[in-house]
């Protein structure tokens, strides 16, 4: 499943897409993110299963443009820690 967390507002589109079919819930991204944007929980959109997946925390969903900002400097942008940490290529950022 493609879980898109984030938003679109007047200033642009800011989504973190998690491909949960590939997610093994290893938690490496959770460790890698310096701002606590990600967590591993019971799959919130598949309540009848017991599968765990990575999600963007409820507290951060409405402000990832800002929270993720420091990892996205305007020039010389390094690879994102969350994406680099993920062994299964689950994470994508739209901006």
């Amino acid at each position: 499943m493609k879980a898109n967390y984030g938003y679109k507002d007047g200033s642009g589109e800011f989504f973190i897409t998690l491909d949960t079919d590939r997610c093994t819930a290893c938690g490496d991204c959770v460790e890698a993110c310096p701002y606590g944007v990600l967590e591993v929980v019971d799959d919130p959109v598949d309540p009848l299963s017991d599968v765990q997946v990575a999600v963007v925390t409820e507290a951060e969903r409405k402000k990832i443009k800002y929270t993720c900002g420091p990892c996205k400097p305007v020039v010389d942008r390094p690879p994102l820690p969350c994406m680099t940490a993920c062994p299964e290529d689950v994470i994508a950022h739209s901006w």
Binding site: Y66, P70, P73
Partner: peptide
């Protein structure tokens, strides 16, 4: 302020 700070952090 949080929003402005994080914007500023993007330029350092």
């Amino acid at each position: 302020a949080t929003r402005i700070t994080s914007m500023a952090r993007r330029v350092g």
